[in-house]
Design a protein around this nucleic acid. Structure first.
Lengths: 130, 130
DNA sequence: TAGTATATACGAATCGTTTCGTATACAATA
DNA sequence: TATTGTATACGAAACGATTCGTATATACTA
């Protein structure tokens, strides 16, 4: 065990792109990173990080062509869940409700989203009656 | 501006202790850190980190006695809010509802907490009728 | 007072992430 | 074929967080 999946913030940005876009080249990822940001990131920087992510098992790659194609090797929900768990413990000492209250209080949420969350709560309450 | 408050995980652990316990000495903090953990941390390590936190403005200290007393200089809710914002963007691309759903789905929440959250949602819905 | 325990200060080693310069390979083209 | 553009590979610098050894000051105690 002890298989800690713990992407850094930089790695997470790359994962977000791959989750959304699917298999991509380093250049595509790098372009998107530079689009969506204030600062600019050199091509070899992105390449290096993606190579390291590959070594860590976060990405897989097809190197049958000169231009390698990278794909996320980890599922979005799984990573989010792991990060959330960690964050919850680090910042809220594990109190999910405290986090939830602050989340809903501080951030704009659409009526639809609120309804969705409420529905989930209703369901949780039903399944756990006692 | 550009007054980024961004405690590291290690710093956050110390803040948690100070938030809970109030003003404390380095030794007290270090003891609690070692109590509540698997790994052990040297005294001078904790001292160093707290000194750095002091320089960053995260802590204030009373050095009128030989044994200095440290106090959290930042409010718990404020730090949590800033961290949550960052985390929400990094891991969920800003979708609070996605985070909320995963949070409530994955973690055990007591009926009381669920009720509390539902009450907040009701209130949010009332205040934002259209 | 001499010796021991405990405090802070300082500086350096280590570690992981991020960054990029440079070397090298390969492909397209003039 | 020689030039130019674009890949990957490699290595090292820079940076921040963490860790701790050691020096020094101070208090306690035998």
């Amino acid at each position: 065990m002890a298989n800690e999946i713990r992407p850094t913030e930089g790695e997470l940005e790359i994962l977000q792109i791959l989750w959304k876009k699917g298999p991509s080249t380093v250049r595509e990822v790098n372009d998107l990173l530079n689009d969506a940001q204030d600062k600019s990131i050199g091509y070899t920087t992105t390449l290096k990080i993606m190579q390291i992510m590959f070594e860590k098992g976060l990405l897989k790659r097809d190197d049958s062509q000169r231009t390698h194609i990278y794909t996320a090797e980890v599922r979005e929900g799984k990573i989010q869940s792991a990060l959330l768990d960690r964050f919850l413990n680090a910042a809220y000492k594990g109190s999910a409700s405290k986090l939830a209250l602050q989340l809903l209080g501080n951030h704009k949420t659409t009526p639809d989203e609120l309804a969705e969350i409420k529905a989930l709560i209703d369901q949780l309450e039903k399944n756990k009656p006692s």
